[in-house]
């Protein structure tokens, strides 16, 4: 006997993500899902970004890691309101799913925020598959990784609204070909803006901040 099902396996997550999106819209907060492999410099990038956009853009952060509160501790030093999710309580998940974001977001005073940045767990595979109810996605690649990462993890780069190539201050010491890395990103996602910058020296930082602020402004207008 054959049973016809035709159901999406991640339907539960997608339903929750849509619920999150409506909840965030009601609260008037724009949500950015920031993803990368481990060690690409997301937390440093965020610390420097927060220093530039706050307090004009009132920002909160949810940071996901399997273990430790190190990232939350670093981010808290910028004065931002931050919630750490550790997924080891949930089986050491390699990504943040919509239900975890829902739980954390409800602990935050979202009315007091314009922007909520979710620093996802360092991983170029799994987080791409899980919608958390975000308005935009940003993927970070660093020059100490391979130029071909966008071709190896196409879903991540395909679904991102913008990409950052971080740690460009290290380029003189590496054989990394930045042009090739950007070209590979453009193969997967031709229209995606790519920002080449160094979170450490803040070289190349202005276009990224301009994009971020413009995105928050345009999304929050759309959300109203």
């Amino acid at each position: 006997m054959e049973i016809n099902i035709q159901k999406k396996v991640l339907e539960v997550n997608e339903t929750m993500a849509d619920r999150n999106r409506n909840f965030f819209k009601d609260k008037g907060v724009v949500v950015l899902n920031m993803m990368s492999s481990p060690g690409s410099g997301k937390t440093e990038l965020l610390c420097k970004t927060l220093a530039r956009i706050m307090p004009d853009t009132r920002t909160g952060v949810i940071v996901g890691d399997i273990c430790t509160t190190n990232d939350a501790d670093r981010l808290e030093s910028t004065g931002v309101s931050v919630i750490q999710i550790n997924t080891d309580q949930f089986g050491g998940d390699c990504h943040l799913a919509a239900h975890l974001i829902e739980k954390s977001a409800k602990e935050m005073d979202l009315e007091a925020l314009d922007l909520l940045i979710v620093e996802n767990i360092g991983n170029l595979v799994c987080p791409a598959e899980f919608d958390i109810g975000e308005d935009a996605r940003v993927v970070v690649l660093s020059v100490t990784e391979g130029e071909d990462k966008p071709l190896k993890y196409p879903l991540m780069f395909r679904l991102a609204d913008a990409a950052i190539l971080n740690k460009t201050d290290l380029l003189p010491y590496l054989d990394f070909n930045a042009g090739e890395a950007v070209e590979n990103m453009k193969q997967v996602h031709p229209d995606m803006p790519v920002f080449e910058l160094s979170a450490k020296t803040e070289q190349g930082f202005d276009p990224w901040i301009e994009w971020l602020v413009a995105t928050v402004t345009s999304k929050s207008t759309n959300n109203k």
């Binding site: 006997m1 054959e2 049973i3 016809n4 099902i5 035709q6 159901k7 999406k8 396996v9 991640l10 598959e129 966008p150 071709l151 196409p154 879903l155 395909r158 453009k186 193969q187 997967v188 996602h189 031709p190 229209d191």
Partner: peptide, 30 residues
């Protein structure tokens, strides 16, 4: 077959993914 998302006809980059993201159960056989 490869992750190249530029239009081969007009070289445009504004491309929509029609299929390839599926993750669905279609049927069970009891």
């Amino acid at each position: 077959d490869t992750p190249l998302f530029r239009c081969p006809a007009c070289n445009g980059g504004n491309v929509k993914v029609l299929s390839g993201r599926e993750l669905e159960i279609s049927t069970l056989e009891l």
